[in-house]
Design a protein around this nucleic acid. Structure first.
Lengths: 350, 350
DNA sequence: ACAGGGCGTGGGAGCGTTCCCACAGTGTGC
DNA sequence: GCACACTGTGGGAACGCTCCCACGCCCTGT
């Protein structure tokens, strides 16, 4: 009655079997790649499948196997951030490309209260958690910026295969994760500024409650110390990953340390803000102050001047997350951890 | 054997029924919101559902109803573009927020050959088309930039409920679509420049094979003509939606029409390129040449100078696409078309 | 008082798979 | 020559749900 159109219903296993002159079971074996099938039977089935355009019914298969063939990509952030942060976008791209190469299906879940949705009610954590634990997915990929999030622990506790993007703050050893080499990247940024002859180098950090921000700060400090130029504390200003935060932090840094001649910034967006603050203060970039960002996002190349920055292999990270999850789906139990290399991209700002 | 952990299997309808002291059927009726259930039974079932943490098994339901509860968002572009174009990102955001408010599930499909994936083989059009026609989804949302794409026609022909984002070039009347008021927006951009006293106004168009680009150009021309200042053809330069394209087109426009004092650009990214070309040519913005972009994407606010632009209600478009698709899923047959208003956002560039 | 028509309820069948077990046929080792 | 494994095959029984039909019950009209 509500059928929108005369869509022919798809062929079933039984119909393929009839056409191929074998039983349902044999067709099933061929389709699922079972080894013990005669060549003759296999060829007959393949021909019938092609002729009928047979595609296995996912629901029926899932019901029988008690597997859904679906994995979730959970972003523990409001929807707006997910697409504004180029980091997320890159991960999502890498993940969806990698998933496309498997026969898994991807669902995107955001635990956010975007504009128009209820204030952290039904679309919030609780709903996502019950959805994930409710057997709707075979595994989950989790992107969690805020390190101390208990969600990964909960999910692992519930027995759900899980891979986290970005090293989590807690449960660090019990859960699988993939991260970029934030420590090394920030170090390379500092070394690049040193190599360009800068000596009064500052840093604009990300939010201290995020592991990535802390790792970057630590990497910066380590490189400066190793080079014999440990930065005094007035050369450090706490910011966040946003443009506004970067602008404010840069303004503070200029007040605290007017002699600064180079700065490592926690994100490209924040570096954009720093550029504005520097322009407002009449400092030329890179002549007076050299600026290095982090991410190599789209905005980096189009900044004025184009940003020298640390590239994170976001797509590769997404792909590795999928790979680790697939390993778990195939029975692997021990958590794995991967740190992917970051890379300096030199443009005009430093 | 391969069970990664002791995940307790979820409660079934039958268990809920036993606990509530009613039959499977009654539980099913309560869960699906069937009207004819006594209050007593309903309360008993609800209590049992809560106690057992019952969540309906999607696969079983789908098998019985012959509906999947899943819709696809198909982006007929390579993966890279999907996340780089802020337009796509906004739509995806709106769609996923709206889907989150239903009990549908969203799968993201991109017909692209991203880096690392096969050269337009398995992940290409054919695969997507057979996936969609194969009964895996109840309906599809299609984002197609290139207007003459035959895909919407095919899908509608296959009886699949479908809503297209952006007015398609062909099958315009037979398929439902949601679009932004490109024509009106470009007109408002022109009027804004006129109101600021500009008289030698040029336009940088998008690719002529895209409906949105043509609509914007038409809107620009209409407004200029209506104001009594039709732009001569040397004030029009064909570009595309990318930064590089915008830069090239602006360079050409400056050569063709050196007296230009204002320009309407087909996208923010292209406007960024135009800004660069103008800077290279020694023209100040907005003093010598005022620039209006299109999209109000993230880059608009952070450009130097910040871009005056036309905002598209991308999230609302996504939400409306979902709404139209839901209407079709509930049996509506007649295609619907919605044009959502665009809005001028004034910043420093014009 | 009795037929008739709701209303709420229960049980059976079936959705398209996979899994398990049973069975025929063919070697293989004694 | 016979027991035995092993290979390829077929059919039954789930998987958890929705749908349809049938069954009591109470209320209403005559």
């Amino acid at each position: 009655m509500t059928a929108p159109s005369a869509r022919p219903d798809p062929a079933t296993l039984e119909q393929v079997a009839a056409l191929a002159g074998v039983s349902r079971s044999t067709v099933s074996r061929v389709v699922t790649g079972h080894p013990r099938v005669s060549d003759a039977a296999r060829r007959a089935v393949e021909a019938a499948v092609a002729e009928l355009g047979y595609v296995p019914n996912r629901a029926a298969r899932s019901l029988a196997t008690r597997r859904t063939g679906t994995i979730a990509l959970v972003v523990a952030e409001p929807e707006t951030r997910v697409f504004d942060e180029p980091f997320f976008a890159g991960i999502v791209r890498g993940v969806s490309a990698a998933v496309g190469r498997t026969d898994l299906q991807l669902v995107l879940l955001m635990t956010g209260s975007g504009p128009g949705s209820d204030p952290d009610g039904a679309s919030g954590r609780a709903r996502v958690e019950s959805y994930l634990a409710g057997g709707h997915v075979d595994g989950a990929l989790l992107l969690s910026l805020h390190g101390a999030d208990p969600l990964p622990g909960h999910l692992v506790g519930a027995g759900l295969p899980l891979v986290v993007g970005g090293r989590p703050e807690i449960d660090d050893r019990e859960v699988s994760w993939v991260d970029a080499d934030n420590h090394g990247g920030a170090g390379r940024a500092a070394e690049h500024l040193l190599a360009r002859g800068r000596r009064r180098i500052g840093v604009l950090t990300g939010p201290p409650d995020m592991v990535a921000a802390r790792d970057r700060l630590a990497g910066f400090r380590a490189a400066m110390t190793a080079a014999g130029h440990p930065a005094p504390s007035e050369f450090e200003a706490i910011g966040d990953f946003t443009r506004e935060g970067g602008e404010r932090a840069m303004t503070r840094l200029l007040a605290q340390a007017p002699g600064v001649d180079g700065v490592v910034v926690a994100s490209d967006l924040a570096a954009l803000g720093a550029l504005q603050a520097l322009a407002a203060a009449g400092r030329r970039v890179p002549d007076d102050v050299a600026v290095v960002g982090f991410d190599d996002s789209l905005v980096a190349a189009s900044a004025q001047p184009p940003l020298t920055t640390i590239r994170q292999p976001v797509e590769a990270m997404g792909a590795r997350m999928v790979a680790l999850l697939c390993a778990q789906l195939e029975g692997e139990r021990a958590p794995r951890h991967e740190v992917l290399p970051t890379e300096l991209v030199v443009r005009a700002s430093a």
